[in-house]
Design a protein around this nucleic acid. Sequence first.
RNA 1: GGCCUGUUGGUGAAGGGGUUUAACACGCCACCCUCUCAAGGUGGUAUUCACGGGUUCGAAACCCGUACAGGCUACCA
Length: 549
Amino acid sequence: MNREDLANLIFPTITKTIADYEKMYPERNLENEAKVTRFAPSPTGFMHIGHFMPTLINYVLAKQSNGIFYLRNEDTDSSREVDGAVSYIRHVFSHYHIKPDEYEYKDLNETKGLYAPYIQSERKEIYQTFIKYLIQEGKAYPCFLTPEEIDSIREGQAKDKRRIGIYGRYAKYRDLPVEEAMKRIKKGEVYTIRLKSSGDFNRKFKFNDLAFGEMELPENDLDIPIMKSKDGLPTYHFAHLVDDHLMHTTHVVRGQEWLSSVPIHYELFKTFGFKMPKYIHIPLILKKDGESIRKISKRLDPEAKMSYYEEKGYPYLAVIEAVMTIANSNYEAWREGHPTEPYTNFPFSPKKMSASGALFDLDKLDNISKNIISRMTKEEVYEGVLNWSKEYDIEFYNLLIKYKDYSMLIYNIEREQKKPRKDYTYYSEIKEKTWYMYDEYFKDATITFASPIQQVKTILEEYKTIYQEEDLQEQWFTKIKELCTKLNYATDMKAYKENPEKYLGSIVDVTNIIRVALTSLTTTPDLYSIMKILGKEKVLARIEKILVK
RNA sequence: GGCCUGUUGGUGAAGGGGUUUAACACGCCACCCUCUCAAGGUGGUAUUCACGGGUUCGAAACCCGUACAGGCUACCA
């Protein structure tokens, strides 16, 4: 009886070798500097902003180096799996125009890429081949510790203030004779496979993280589980080793919470003699909660969910720009110098990444978004609102379809100029800011004036007589001033403020009466533009409606 | 408890020993412009870089300690 027999007892159906798989998944044929990156989520919840940042960085790194960005589904924990998590990722990717070069969508029966399967639960045999090798080499062993035993070990360690985990003398089964192990397995005892660690916790090794720089970490000496008893699937650490080796990942971009697992990964790669990918650990996105700061939470913070941004109707690029700004401190400066280049051209530098967690600033996002919308053409704005309303406001959507050109005129107010208006922050806001332009909504508006109704009527009566649709802006404004003079309103605020008792009011009162009559609101974009778009018929009808009351 | 990482305004941050009386952007405030908004313009907004020591002619920057925050410490990823 030897380790070979033990390996065969545990994995009777595994006949391939590691070399076989390395042949099946050969080196990628890419340029020298090309980076191979991946987004490898576990489908245990819906994608949130904390996933989005690493996704973007991975994507940018691959794109700008003519490399490969692939999607891998890390579904090794079936008990925590959430329905729809994978299709939601697909949705987010398509919403943000992120196209993975390789992926596997089981529900669509769609696979792309030569390193498939990209779903971990379908790679069981591959992992087991690697584990079998370890057993043969005596570098892994079946462990018969029960959960209860492990709990009591942990309790004991905590009580004695010792390091917690299965290592050294706590690793009860690491030196169990092969015969004994086989006997127990044959008897049907439940076991997990653990790595037989050769590390020494008191020894340090040097590790270079591309974001954090060089650091010294203690070697791993934990006999970590690499295969679960329940279904023979590997744990995260082991799957990471196998997949990133076979898929030839060059750069792993992941959240900082993984930094403390590096010693495990280091040992795993060393054990097999595989080259480690480069690591870029990125800061967490945090949230201020009263006085304290914590990791952003899907449960507590609506803005953590990717759906938040879609529902509000931020242009997809606004969210990307905002995240890039957090990810790399010199992104904004680069953007200023390259206003029209795709963000994927940004020379991303891991060294320029902050090492501490960052609060996600929604004000900044709003500002970025406003700027992006202000630089769009009227057609692009229309497209944006249309797509948004199709999902979230079907009534408005129908109106937009009906009044396409008319709506675009509204979006074009003060747009085609050097410094365009910036009043739309996101698409969901546009209806709130333009509804009065549509009779369908305006008919139900309540109209109240700040000035006495007699004054209102006088002004509107007079205005009706001077209003000419074809007037140019300057002509229109001259007429307004003449009207002011005629009715004893000051034509400019300075004059009015100096002698308020001399006048009935100022030009502001006059224009605001017209504004309210036409829109029901006291704040709108330029009145002249609004009237141009409404057209003579609507303008007069809306004025008449007030006069007859 | 152990290990790891961090700490510069309200936010993201630049800066890695003297050119910093701390850049830039967002926010906020004030004023200007103005038919109301949105913009735009001008200016203000950290008595000083978590704290305490040290090194130095000189420290936000280098060293040590402390505090605080976060992460990990699962047959979760």
